[in-house]
Design a protein around this nucleic acid. Sequence first.
DNA 1: ACAAAAGTGTTCCAGGTACACCCATGA
DNA 2: TCATGGGTGTACCTGGAACACTTTTGT
Lengths: 246, 246
Amino acid sequence: MGQEKEEYKNKANWDKFLPGLAIDCVIVGYHERELKILIMEYENTDLYALPGGFIEKDEDLDKAASKVLKERTGLKDIYLSQFHTFGRHDRSDTDAMKIVMENNDIKYDENHWLLRRFVSVGYVALVDYKAVAPTPGIMSSKCTWFDLDSIPTLIQDHREIIDEALLYLRNHVDNKLLGANLLVDTFTMKDLQKLHETILGEKLHRTGFHRKMMDSGHLKRLGKKKTGKAHRSPYLYRFVTENDMD
Amino acid sequence: MGQEKEEYKNKANWDKFLPGLAIDCVIVGYHERELKILIMEYENTDLYALPGGFIEKDEDLDKAASKVLKERTGLKDIYLSQFHTFGRHDRSDTDAMKIVMENNDIKYDENHWLLRRFVSVGYVALVDYKAVAPTPGIMSSKCTWFDLDSIPTLIQDHREIIDEALLYLRNHVDNKLLGANLLVDTFTMKDLQKLHETILGEKLHRTGFHRKMMDSGHLKRLGKKKTGKAHRSPYLYRFVTENDMD
DNA sequence: ACAAAAGTGTTCCAGGTACACCCATGA
DNA sequence: TCATGGGTGTACCTGGAACACTTTTGT
């Protein structure tokens, strides 16, 4: 990675990217009944941002996005969907970028590409929290999960991007399959219900939810879980695919 | 417009736009029970394309899109929505752009901006066919409506963009208000139903449709239409807004 | 009077909600 | 055996689909 960083300091290497265009990924995970978002902290600063990246000149937009996902989480072949392109004229954050570059010994002048306006294409990913190894990238020292309700102040309009992403999920994720990527292998019906409630932002009725999920045909019931609690122990469930009938 | 064209031939003026980024608008109208799309023909060529434009360096993306809409149709304050950003690495159409520039006496070299890859943000608009005065822009001689089923071959991936736009409409347009922009002031229930069927791509049941529309509260019934046909003449309807209760 | 299309009323069914009840479990 | 929470059965409600019937109009 040290070598990659050297490349970033060399102006020539910026040329391999499309100028003025970026990708930001809202990577959503779920753990202990809380939605989590993967957030980067720029090295040696108190600046937080969404994981993002640039697009190489001969690279598909979607490919660049899945590369970001792969590099930050180690995951591939995951639900990843473009949801909106952010292009307000004032969405640059010059001060923040200067700090980032200064703290990383990157030489720049006032016309540096990173200081100018960016248009950014937003992607959402739903990933299994447990399967992710958050990996910081160039210019960032940390890459960690934050609870949705305790996300720090982010640079630019990244907070808006998150909110738009969640709105998009609410409207577009197939209810029948919501959780297929977000949950660990096995889970209880209550886990699944809490997840749906968190993303949809509303309480659901227990029994109706149960029936709807089972009727969808995507869930398979496994053995019971031993909870040690003073009540009936819940069944465990797992998502099954069409090729997985048994 | 002659003066504007001169500007385009002057390389310096390209610099006022964000490089590598464009906007394409799918402008949808409705006339005689057919969906229409506004298509441009490049001057002195047989090349057809969606109306599009570039984004000025200090201009909002959405603003640039509504500017395109305004310039090609004369309309403003119209339903206009960003639906997808197209960024395949091979979506340029070098040959077509060379023909366009040659036919317009624009000097270029192999590195010209227009010959390189573009990422394009797609917008859809629903407009009243009758209220539109299609106006060709720079480098294009014609700007005309085409029936959805007789659109000529378009440059780049513009045909895909149209198909994506229609898909987007199907999933996102509020059924209750579909037609509020597309239809002329007054219309029959059958007109409205045909429009819905065209956009949704499926037959609807006459009576159920009628009731649903009336129940929505957005329609007001006016006097009867004299058709001259050998059957009961239909009522005319009009969309009403919340501020328009009478 | 008849045909054709518009408008209205009625029935039926599916999916969703609400609620009652049973089951399992550890204190 | 009781409290707690998971799982299931049933009654009810609403919105849509299907269909019958009435109304209007020109031939």
